[in-house]
Amino acid sequence: MRVEYINPFVEAAYNIMTEVLQTEVERKDLYLKKTTQPVMGVAALVGLAGDVEGRVLIDMSQDSAIKIASTMNGEKLTSMDELAKATITELANMITAQAVTKLFDLGFKFDLTPPSIITGENMSVSDANVEALIVPLEMPQGLVEINVAIRERA
């Protein structure tokens, strides 16, 4: 997978999270996974189909998701309730919208699915015939991984 596909998502996630959480966000080193990978507990999933195809996962622990949703709502949330899910969905919406604008400017054309929120323990994700690039972002609310598996359509 080409790094140019992940960079817009990482930049967008960095920009949006810095803005909505009003905090420092630290970008950690990118890594690559070819096989099945664990998912942390709350994952926002967006599918892409067009010139490029695949998916983007914005992955975090339930604890981090609740803390992020609490900051964004300006109130302490205690569980992954409907409001917390709507908040993480909106976060994923804003990140993908900004990233996709960049990819469209680079000349790629594709459609997106609305974000789905997946929650649970001991989950993993497998992608057939495409490796995933992962960039962890560290912030006071916890760790968020931007996990992108995209390939060009044959």
């Binding site: 964004m72 709502n73 409907e82 409001l83 709507a86 908040t87 969905t89 919406n93």
Partner: peptide
């Protein structure tokens, strides 16, 4: 359609 955005604008 987002409960979060509706709440945010409302507040």
């Amino acid at each position: 359609d987002s409960m979060f955005v509706t709440k945010q604008i409302g507040q």
